[in-house]
Design a protein around this nucleic acid. Structure first.
Length: 941
RNA sequence: GCCCGGGUGGCGGAAUGGUAGACGCACAGGGCUUAAAACCCUGAGGGGGCCUAAAAAUCUCCAUGCCGGUUCGAGUCCGGCCCCGGGUACCA
């Protein structure tokens, strides 16, 4: 038989399938539907990536499998065709984006077709076609009508040299990507979608869908729901109040200053009262020129300015607090103002360190029983962290230990390092002495294992000793005052104290030092019971939270990190926003019947300083649809994410010119049953698409409110060197080359066999050989057909039917293929026509051309792809004898062949035939017998 | 820092708490061939012991990032730690 000619075979079947329209989805079908969708590609000039192939093959397998199971499958493809790269390319090469986009689509289409993917090409769509973006504009109007689209001023990245707005990705190190000019922040009127209105639904909906946990977690993070309180602080001598948002109202008594965002309106309102107004204004201006990105990129170094002459009053205890402005507080989150509690918040702590502000602890961690709060005083304080001050009498050195667990625990913990005749304390002191000899105390691993405790000291070596002594001088004096109790266990060297007791006696400066010593220079963010909190002392901090907030007239509120979605883009290659501005009528939506607002083709899209559409007089000079007066058309286009937020509806009804999709089509096909795509879309695209569906649901267009029932990501395919494939590294694999040399089936099998679908995997050209060999050997089975098969073949065949079917449903294609390889190895010893036909059906989703070729070579005339999925025979599976492992005391001592349902007696009898087993048993009854039928027999003796 | 993943042969990877390394690649030996490619067969985690001229089989110990625990039995479950990848970040 001739070598398998993949080029001829694949071409032949692709043409036949296409001629028969085999993969069309039928709207009028009565079969159960299955909607299997890929994230439609952006048709880049670079062409198809092997990563696309991975994803598309996976969904193709699912689609083909579903068809063979008798489902009516909708498996469409289209193009996310608007976007910046096409526009940039157009600027560079002076070819219109329409042309370059259509060229790229042509190339993608050819490449995708060469892979034998079973798309319904009659439903192909492109977001850049007027028939499509007409409905994108319709969606804009739908949102507008319901008050979900609004205009507001917002900051954009602005390049003063190119006179253009830049996307965040176009800003590199604060400079324009193209010309290197420093980028400015500019306020522009922009359109927003009110996605925040659906924040709660977007959050709770996650619990109802089958998505990867990581993606759900990312979306939850992005939405960033947090519960807290709004509390007002009076400004001394003024009417205005400062309203802060905090998630920790329980720490109200620990607030030692307030911070306003630089853009907070009160900053301007209070200007006259601020004594250092000039300094403040400078700071505000500098902050306003920074993007959010820069503000955080500057790292942990905090900046801010005290508002001199302004004091705020803590409503809980009447304390007068200083007020700062600092850009670590954002105007757009919460109330734009915070109460700072340095003892219990990392950022406030850091700021307080830098600006020398007091740090007051109000929460103390405590152990098991928060409902039974300890009385004040030392002996009763039950803490999971015990702080111990050790003093070595012989050298006069001190160290501070903190350990976790009970006091009894320390003895055990120290045991490891104790020498004979030593007490645990002495052992610990030995260590201190050694460390002290080196200079003060140090955090060391050595000490950790010996004491089970941690030494705390300042990070800086030069401060370490000074800090220790400063503290211990205080401790000594407290000891003199009797503030530190003596104790049986500690009488010679060991003293333990309540750190808060100590803190009460110290100056701010000392407090800071001790804080650093005790707490690794960090705030305590954990829970516990309250101290220094007036009548709330001793209460559980979580429990008291609401009461504290309400006791000062605050109220509990929920805040989200999620912001409204800014959809305006000052670019050409996108869907125009269907809005007209009239001097008389104001903002007027374009009437639905006037849609689409066509993208003009005669526009000069070269960058000259204006939004390209604004330069087309024919485009923007219009008459008001309401009053007929001359008016101006909105010249911005929409974010491309708008286009991709609803495309999966269009596939259900791609040619409808009366609706984005008909009710019947939506009812028939949606929601999407399986959605597959890259993990780079975990947040934006997937969140926006969900938002659109929530909106449609709210206004009665859909009965469901989540668009993608089941969603999975494919892992990225790395280059052979383990790095990302990139043009500049020259390590890109072009699927065209692989298809030509090895065939589409081989490429598909290879990529599916690489490993689990969702992990990152490096490409390995060598391994393609394995897939290719599989294809060839499958084909050669035609020559190895026999009348009769070995007896072991049928059970294996049925096991394979079972496993392949199950694996496909779990998207475990690698193990499905490995099972078929096992079957192939056996089939080469002889396989009947009937068995080979079954095999061909199993193979069909993975290698559709080869399976079709085999199927027809075996005399079939209809397509294998509708031949039905084979059923396995339980009886054949059960009949197979299984190997049971025999263990003695958990160690393998041999194996026995048994029926799967053999009794324990049978198993024992068979096992005793093994010499190693009978030797051990030799008359003794095993203490215990563990028998798992079909698996293992373990004898404990 | 935080949130997700993940660490198993030379490599990709497999394993409902039950023979660790399926399947494949690469490799080695052999067959076919004038020769090579292709193809076919066989082998193989590491160490040690036994027997040997040498090897195989057999025996035994060790082995899934590290330390400990639960269990008759742990790659899998629990606690602690280390490392790698991805995402995200002054969000109060």
């Amino acid at each position: 038989m001739a070598k398998y000619d993949h080029q001829a075979v694949e071409k032949k079947w692709q043409e036949k399938w296409e001629a028969h329209g085999m993969y069309r989805a039928h709207d009028d079908s009565t079969k159960p539907k299955e909607y299997i969708l890929d994230m439609f590609p952006y048709p880049s000039g670079a062409g198809l990536h092997v990563g696309h192939v991975e994803s598309y093959t996976a969904t193709d397998i699912m689609a083909r499998f579903a068809r063979m199971q008798g489902k009516e499958v909708l498996h469409p493809i289209g193009w996310d065709a608007f976007g910046l790269p096409a526009e940039n390319y157009a600027i560079k090469t002076k070819t219109p984006p329409q042309k370059s986009t259509d060229d790229a689509i042509g190339n993608f289409r050819r490449q995708i077709k060469s892979l034998g993917l079973s798309y319904d090409w009659s439903r192909e769509i492109g977001t850049h076609s007027p028939e499509y973006y007409r409905w994108t504009q319709w969606f804009f109007l739908l949102l507008y009508k319901h008050g979900l689209a609004y205009r507001a001023k917002s900051k954009v990245n602005w390049c003063p040299s190119c006179k253009t707005v830049l996307a965040n990705e176009q800003v590199v190190d604060g400079k324009c990507e193209r010309c290197g000019t420093e980028v400015e922040q500019k306020d522009l009127e922009q359109w927003f979608f009110k996605i925040t209105q659906y924040a709660d639904e977007l959050l709770s909906g996650l619990d109802t869908i089958d998505w990867p946990d990581s993606t759900k977690a990312a979306q939850r993070n992005w939405i960033g729901k947090s519960e807290g309180a709004e509390i007002e602080f009076a400004i001394v001598g003024r009417e205005e109040k400062i309203k802060v948002f905090t998630t920790r109202p329980d720490t109200l008594f620990g607030a030692t200053y307030l911070v306003l965002a630089p853009e907070h309106p009160l900053v301007a309102a209070l200007a006259g009262r601020i004594k250092n107004e000039k300094e403040v204004r400078t700071y505000v201006k500098a902050a306003s020129n920074k993007t959010d990105l820069e503000r955080s990129a500057e790292g942990k170094e905090k900046t801010g300015v005290l508002l001199k002459g302004i004091k705020a009053e803590n409503p809980a205890n009447g304390e007068k607090l200083p007020v700062f402005i600092a850009d670590y507080v954002f105007g757009s989150y919460g109330t734009g103002a915070i109460m700072a509690v340095p003892a219990h918040d990392e950022r406030d702590f850091e700021f307080a360190q830098k600006f020398d502000l007091p740090i007051r602890q109000v929460v103390v961690s405590c152990t098991d029983d928060p409902k039974n709060p300890p009385e004040k005083g030392l002996k009763e304080v039950k803490r999971d962290t015990v702080v111990v001050h050790l003093k070595d009498l012989s050298t006069g050195k001190y160290a501070i230990l903190e350990w976790h667990g009970s006091l009894e625990g320390i003895t055990t913990a120290i045991m490891g390092g104790i020498e004979e005749g030593q007490t645990p304390e002495e052992a610990a002191l030995m260590e201190i002495r050694e460390e002290a000899a080196l200079e003060g105390v140090r955090i060391t691993r050595k000490l950790r294992w010996i004491t089970g405790a941690r030494y705390f000291a300042s990070h800086k070596a030069e401060n370490r000793v000074a800090h220790t002594y400063a503290l211990l001088a205080e401790v000594d004096s407290l000891e003199g005052q009797g503030a530190i109790p003596d104790n049986e266990q500690t009488k010679h060297t060991l003293v333990w104290v309540d750190e808060n007791k100590v803190l009460d006696h110290l100056t701010v400066d000392h407090q800071k030092q001790i804080w650093q010593l005790l707490h690794k220079e960090a705030a305590l963010t954990g829970d516990g019971y309250l101290i220094n909190s007036g009548s709330f002392d001793g209460r559980d901090n979580r429990e008291a939270m609401r009461e504290i907030a309400e006791s000062v007239g605050g109220k509990m509120v929920t805040t989200y990190r999620l912001r409204d979605w800014g959809v305006s883009r000052q670019r050409y290659w996108g869907a125009p926003i269907p809005i007209i501005y009239c001097e008389k009528c104001g903002t007027v939506p374009v009437p639905e019947e006037d849609l689409p607002v066509l993208l003009p083709e005669d526009v000069d899209f070269m960058p000259t300083g204006e939004s390209p559409l604004a330069r087309s007089a024919s485009f923007h000079q219009v008459t008001c649809p309401t009053c007929g007066a001359p008016a101006r058309r909105e010249s911005d286009t929409m974010d491309t994410f708008v286009c991709s937020s609803w495309y999966y509806y269009r596939f259900a009804d791609p040619h409808d010119d009366s609706a984005f999709a008909s009710d019947a089509a939506i009812k028939k096909w949606l929601p999407v049953d399986l959605y597959l795509g890259g993990a780079e879309h975990t947040v934006l695209h997937l969140l926006y698409a969900r938002f659109f569906t929530k909106v449609l649901h709210a206004f009665g267009y859909t009965s469901f409110d989540e668009p993608f029932q089941k969603m999975r990501h494919q892992g990225i395919i790395l280059a052979e060197d383990g790095r990302k494939m990139s043009k500049s590294l020259g390590n890109v694999i072009n699927p065209d080359d692989v298809v030509r040399e090895y065939g589409a089936d081989t490429l598909r099998l290879y990529e599916m066999f690489m490993g689990p679908l969702d992990i990152a995997k490096p490409w390995n050209t060598n391994n393609i050989t394995g897939a290719r060999r599989f294809v060839e050997r499958m084909y050669r089975l035609l020559e190895k057909r026999t009348e009769t098969e070995p007896a072991t073949f049928a059970p294996l065949l049925h096991e394979t039917i079972k496993k392949v079917g199950e694996d496909i449903q779990e998207l475990k294609f690698n193990t499905a293929i490995s099972q078929m390889m096992i079957l192939l190895n056996a089939a080469e010893e002889g396989i009947s026509d009937e068995s080979l036909k079954i095999f061909a059906r199993l193979l069909a989703p993975f290698a559709p051309h080869l399976a079709e070729e085999l199927w027809h070579a075996l005399g079939e005339t209809e397509s294998v792809h509708f031949a039905g999925w084979p059923q396995y025979d339980e009886a054949l599976l059960a009949a197979k004898a299984v190997t049971v492992i025999v263990q003695v005391n958990g160690k393998r001592r041999g194996d026995i062949l048994l029926a799967p349902d053999a009794s324990q007696e049978d198993a024992l009898a068979a096992a005793s035939a093994i010499p190693a087993v009978s030797a051990v048993l030799s008359g003794n009854e095993p203490k215990r017998v563990v028998y798992v039928p079909g698996r293992i027999l373990n004898l404990v003796v």
